[in-house]
Design a binder for these strands. Sequence first.
DNA 1: AGCATAAATGAGAATAATTCTCATTTTTTT
DNA 2: AAAAAAATGAGAATTATTCTCATTTATGCT
Lengths: 165, 165
Amino acid sequence: MRIILIFLFEFFYYTLIMGKSSKQILSEHNVSITNPRILVLEVLLDNKGPVTVDELQNVLNNKVAKSTLYRVLNDLKKINLLHEFTSPENTTVVELILEDRAHHHHLFCSDCGEVIDVELSNKFEDFLAAEIKKIEKKFNFKISDHRVEMFGQCTDQCKNCTTDS
Amino acid sequence: MRIILIFLFEFFYYTLIMGKSSKQILSEHNVSITNPRILVLEVLLDNKGPVTVDELQNVLNNKVAKSTLYRVLNDLKKINLLHEFTSPENTTVVELILEDRAHHHHLFCSDCGEVIDVELSNKFEDFLAAEIKKIEKKFNFKISDHRVEMFGQCTDQCKNCTTDS
DNA sequence: AGCATAAATGAGAATAATTCTCATTTTTTT
DNA sequence: AAAAAAATGAGAATTATTCTCATTTATGCT
């Protein structure tokens, strides 16, 4: 009985409160469950939102070899769990693609290098979708994705711009 | 008299038909006029639009040392003549910023790697400007620039997608 | 025009980010 | 629990970019 309760607790905790565990996510995508993958995924799940490869390397220092870190990131890209992009300062930024997260864009601070997720209004997204249809016709393209990038400076003390508002 | 006519021809040819010459552009920005700078600028003026650093290197092979090419590109960035960005395949792309060119965005083909300049409607740009104002307030940011990136595949034979339509 | 000074260049070494290699370890399959 | 397959760590290799420094080129001055 006690074991059942613990199991239930884990179930609720991970799936409802915390979201999926790294192990769950890995097994759902048919990739073998290994320590480096769990560790990397956990860091990414903690910092939902954009993370620098450099930051990952620092956090995982001594726990995951750097070659393995890159391999794991490529694995996650292959199963469409990870989105990778480059900041204007040329640092590689990485972000989990979670089903429950809305489509969003990025705001880059040239002072502190911070990258912030930004959602734009539905009305705007509809308008952009219409523009994209026109572009597809004009250039005979099949456009599968888009992203709006905004560049500027946070006027607050840096690092404060990450706190939600 | 003949000399004056030739001068006039040159003037009209370069400023009205061809746009400014590389030398003119350089002297207007107070950078010394050197061969490598002229050569790089000329290639960029020919291919108005996005060019890969790789392509530049190939075209200028043996004419400009690779260290110099990078230096010249950095010089042009410093005087705000050059916009540099990264394709999803992680190649560095470079594009002249010409006063007579409209604000535009980029369309990337994942098949042939081509990058295409795209203008979106004024109505769309106005809408986006309004969204950006909201974002500036929300995140206490000063946003100085933005770019819409579109990703997909040209359904034509590759390389054809560069021809205007 | 010609000289002195400052700036730019070429060639290749140095650096940084990412990928690759391969012997060992871990995970999965049976 | 053993065999087969896959993943890992450590460091070498690769690639793009920057740096160094001796030489060349451009600019300002007379």
